[in-house]
Amino acid sequence: MKDTTKNTNKVLLSMEHLNFSFNIQRGVVKAVRDLSLTIREGETLTLVGESGCGKSVTAHAINQLNPMPPGEVVSGSINFKGRDLLTLPMHEIEALRGTQISMIFQEPMTALNPVFTIGSQIADVFMTHQKISKQEGLKRAVHLLDLVKIPSPETRVHSYPHQLSGGMRQRAMIAMALASPEPGLMIADEPTTALDVTIQAQILDLLNDLKSKVNMSILLITHDMGVVAEMADRVAVMYAGRKVEEADVFSIFEEPRHPYTLGLLNSLPSNQKYKGARRLEAIDGTVPDLLTIGEGCPFCNRCTFALPICSKEFPGETVITEEHSVWCHNHKAVEEIIAK
């Protein structure tokens, strides 16, 4: 098994203490709180968490696709190749989108333009960055469609998005992301959630394959621990707007230190310990309303390890190894459980 954590690689993107809120009628939703992340070149960082944990907001904060207002960056910075994305003027952000930061979505139909063929949409990406003819652009589009393993790319290049199946559309989206001259970062927001398992396997395989061919970093947003296990180098677990644990993928699955990570793994019916069992160790209760959340640990009301302090203040970082950090007052208790 190769060691997938490449400490030596350069940092591509670093997010520092991002606070992102939505000001809605009923109050302020603190969607992302004090979040720091780094993505190194050529690695896959996975943001995992359940609905409402702020993982998509985080991704959209990078290429500024969150609606603003009501969205608002309260504080923080996002450094990408030496520039703070949050202070760049809008036209420079737009220039970055699709060139150095590309995005693939859960439902590709909404991201592809229904009135143009996929070939001409890919060619357009080429033509905005290089002075080439439409003919040349289409030729390169065929090459890319071949790269993402779309069968008979010469004919598919003339297809409209609605003529393709869901898996094919997702491949076309990936091809578009690859059309930029220097695909630095690909943000994949639940890229396989809408797909069938056999198609999901194909797309995940394709992404892994491409990552090694093109020097590309992937920020993968998902709620599916299976996808995490297949794809991630490093994992950041989020809960109700906070990062609660971050580690390499093996540590997350084998030695989780946060009660939520542990609960999430125990909730999986595919967990090996449930062979023949008739009951799962579920996490009781529901995710708190982000409107009424206080300064304490957001997980404290569902946590079996909670201490009195948990509801009052959010814990600081505990470094376990160089790659593994946890934000929990009582992580020792989890460690004891795991050791058993």
Binding site: D284, G285, T286, P288, D289, L291, T292, N301
Partner: peptide
């Protein structure tokens, strides 16, 4: 059931 207590935390009118 244990969920009762959790539900009460969500008491928002």
């Amino acid at each position: 059931m244990s969920e009762h207590t959790q539900l009460e935390l969500l008491e928002i009118q």
